[in-house]
């Protein structure tokens, strides 16, 4: 998440002080991600140094007001226009954990997968319930929160499908190694069904 660009975008609306920026950010992203106030001030200092915001001085109540500069506005335009940068490949603790687990002797990979599946589905239950409750309220202010929840639901569902694929792969390997195990994941997904879900499928 780019704190720098998020703050700039909020300043494009109107000049604000640090604490206001923090509250506004949380409101507009459905309170999903919290910013600590220290991060806000450090980021504002850097934006000022780079000429993207200007420090307008105190409002008389001890708040330092910042406003966006022309260069800042151009930066916001570019940010919205460009696709989000992906760390390549994105760091994914679960993938790293499983990749290490399959290479170590004596690790019960299927147990790891099942434990993760239970945790992921539990999270999916919570997101789904939150989405249902929010949608039932039909408040305009909830649109941002709904978008964020949808994104979390898609991510978590993808995680569960990926776990199914991992399990199916493991079972397939065990089978080719001579053990009679079905080629199905715990949710009945075969490697053939799941393979198109990932880019590097070896078919």
């Amino acid at each position: 998440m780019s704190i720098r660009h998020s703050l700039l975008a909020l300043l494009q609306d109107q000049p604000r002080y640090g604490y206001q920026l923090r509250v506004e950010f949380e409101n507009r992203t459905g309170s999903t991600w919290s910013l600590n106030i220290g991060q806000v001030y450090t980021t504002l200092d850097r934006l000022e140094r780079d000429g993207l915001v200007s420090n307008d001085g105190s409002d008389g109540e001890g708040h330092v007001i910042y406003s966006i500069t022309a260069a800042g506005k151009a930066e916001v335009r570019n940010w919205f226009a460009a696709p989000v940068e992906r760390n390549n490949p994105p760091r994914n603790e679960l993938a790293i954990k499983l990749a290490l687990a399959v290479t170590l002797p004596g690790v019960d990979v299927q147990a790891i997968i099942q434990a993760q599946r239970v945790a992921s589905i539990r999270a999916l239950q919570d997101y789904t319930k939150a989405r249902r409750d929010t949608a039932a309220n039909q408040r305009a202010a909830d649109t941002a929160w709904l978008l964020v929840l949808d994104s979390l639901i898609f991510q978590t569902e993808a995680e569960v499908r990926w776990l199914d694929l991992c399990e199916a792969r493991m079972l397939q390997q065990a089978q080719t190694a001579g053990q009679a195990t079905p080629r199905k994941s715990s949710n009945g997904v075969t490697v053939e069904e799941a393979a198109p879900l990932i880019a590097d499928s070896r078919r």
Binding site: I121, L124, Q125, T128, I153, E157
Partner: peptide, 10 residues
């Protein structure tokens, strides 16, 4: 999983 997530308990 997407459908199971509507349940109180899986």
């Amino acid at each position: 999983a997407r459908h199971a997530a509507w349940a109180d308990r899986v």
